[in-house]
């Protein structure tokens, strides 16, 4: 049984997306190299951008249908969204960020109680009064996850939520994502270009390349599919990992340089 059915076409200046796939209950990884159209697909499903043509159906509801002129605004789509850089509202507390997203609770008090329970669930309850700017990357994504769940969504969309995190933190958060998807019984579409991440998380896998669906793998076949991926892709994944290392080294070097420069100035 599929929870989400997507059939979308969208043209950008130098890119054309034309995808058709279904997402079953559970966690589906939208996998592919950078520039394959993964994030664009999520934005179109969430209604953050308007597709040129196609249909999106979620649990029997039509969210978008260009032929019938249906285009529900994002807030009516009941999708939770976790952005790569969290995008917590910087002027509100962690608790407010989650409480503002709570649906189906009338009083302010019950909204805050629900937000509190969600923060507890993602292991971030002690951060409730904090401002987002004081949080680490991992903490931000925990809060973003709680916020995405606060609307009791019919679908969870996660756009490379862990790709900016260090390895140990990323491992813990992968487990957390799996746990909440199971305990909330919410279908999830998780975007990543990281093969390990895809292998660990995916119940099903949709492989995207250059704006097209290359392959859809159902439950059970994911590991095998990832293993037989082309040499070029393996190289690309390795290159991504290398880039992350270099970026980190560069950042460290930058810090070291500025210390040296400051010393030089002092002398």
């Amino acid at each position: 049984m599929s929870a989400l059915a997507v059939s979308l076409r969208h043209r950008l200046e130098r890119f054309e997306l034309d995808v058709r796939f279904e997402v079953p209950v559970g966690l589906t990884v939208l996998f592919g190299p950078s520039g394959a159209g993964k994030s664009l697909t999520l934005a179109l499903v969430a209604g953050l951008r308007r597709a040129d043509a196609g249909r999106v159906e979620l649990s029997g509801r039509t969210l978008f249908d260009s032929e019938r002129g249906v285009d529900l605004p994002t807030r009516q789509r009941r999708v939770g969204f976790v952005f790569q850089d969290a995008l917590l509202l910087p002027h509100r507390s962690v608790l407010d960020n989650v409480a503002l997203a709570v649906r189906d609770e009338r009083s302010r008090r019950s909204r805050r109680a629900r937000a509190h329970a969600l923060l507890e669930e993602v292991g971030a309850v002690e951060l409730a009064p904090a401002r987002p700017s004081t949080l680490s990357g991992g903490q931000r994504q925990r809060v973003a996850l709680a916020r995405a769940l606060a609307g009791s969504p019919d679908l969870l969309l996660l756009d490379e939520p862990l790709s900016a995190l260090d390895d140990p933190v990323r491992e813990r958060l992968r487990r957390l994502v799996r746990e909440v998807v199971e305990s909330h019984r919410v279908p999830a579409l998780f975007v990543t270009h990281d093969r390990d991440e895809a292998a660990v998380l995916a119940d099903a896998l949709v492989r995207l390349r250059a704006g097209r669906v290359e392959e859809v793998v159902e439950r059970g076949g994911v590991g095998e599919a990832l293993a037989r991926s082309s040499g070029a892709e393996r190289e690309l994944a390795a290159a991504h990992a290398r880039i992350r290392e270099l970026e980190r080294a560069l950042a460290d070097a930058g810090r070291a340089t500025s210390v040296v420069e400051r010393r030089a100035h002092a002398e």
């Binding site: 953050l48 605004p73 807030r75 952005f83 995008l87 916020r147 606060a150």
Partner: peptide, 27 residues
């Protein structure tokens, strides 16, 4: 504008996004 997009995914209507997100961030 991405904060406003995040607010849309939080289910906030446009008038609340203007009053509770955009204007406070531009305060």
């Amino acid at each position: 504008v991405r904060y406003e997009q995040a607010a849309r995914t939080m289910g906030l209507p446009e008038w609340r996004i203007a009053l509770q997100v955009t204007l406070p961030l531009a305060r």
